[in-house]
């Protein structure tokens, strides 16, 4: 039960994008089409989950026993960078068009604050191994949900009659703001 609450809390109530404002750059950058947004969400979720596993192992098996907690950030960054490189290779191999659609935002996951944030939250809140994985899955699906919702709205927006001055980035940011406002409604759930 506690794990379910943790999952829902990470996915909806403390949604990384819409409540913590982490990982905004792919959220705005790759939310043009639902398909590429979904792939981006899956890529981020995968990186998050594996990062949470590896970073937990590093944190509790290496850093804390040897009093090396000052290496938390560089070692986590190393984990994330290697994983992103791996994901990039896989996507390039599996689907060239997807690789091009994600473009620069795929390598940018490396420095995505959502993922480092997740690893650091996990270490800070002293989650257990299982809790950490559930937290990562929740955060990842929350990110996917947010970016897919955003892409859906933006696809509809292309047909809408938007005033000239609001076309492009301004209306996107306004939509993101309203979406964040809507997610605030989950705040009282748990």
């Amino acid at each position: 039960m506690e794990l379910i609450i943790l999952f829902i809390s990470a996915a909806l109530i403390n949604n990384f994008v819409l409540a913590y404002f982490l990982g905004i750059c792919p959220f705005i950058g790759v939310s043009g089409k639902i398909t590429s947004a979904l792939s981006m969400g899956i890529a981020v979720t995968f990186v998050m989950t594996v990062t949470s596993i590896v970073s937990w192992l590093i944190n509790y098996k290496i850093l804390i026993p040897y009093n090396l907690t000052f290496l938390t950030i560089p070692s986590f960054i190393l984990v994330i960078a290697s994983l992103v490189q791996f994901v990039e290779m896989v996507i390039k191999k599996v689907s060239q068009p997807l690789y091009r659609a994600l473009g620069i935002f795929l390598p940018l996951i490396t420095t995505n604050c959502a993922i480092l944030g997740l690893a650091l939250f996990g270490a800070m809140r002293e989650y257990s191994f299982i809790q950490n994985i559930i937290f990562a899955l929740g955060a990842g699906s929350g990110f996917t949900l947010a970016i897919v919702l955003m892409a859906g709205i933006r696809e509809e927006l292309e047909l809408a009659n938007v005033p000239d001055a609001f076309r492009g980035a301004p209306i996107t940011l306004i939509v993101a703001g309203i979406l964040a406002l809507a997610f605030m409604g989950f705040a009282g759930m748990i």
Binding site: I58, I62, L63, Y66, L68, F70, L71, P74, S75, L78, V79, S82, Q85, F86, M89, V90, K92, K93, Q96
Partner: peptide, 26 residues
């Protein structure tokens, strides 16, 4: 210890990436 930890982690990850690159090269 710090140097060996970071170095060791780097070594492990780069070795894994080498294998991944061989398998997945386009």
């Amino acid at each position: 210890i710090a140097i060996f930890t970071m170095g060791g982690l780097g070594l492990i990850f780069s070795t894994l990436l080498v294998f991944a690159d061989k398998k997945l090269r386009v």
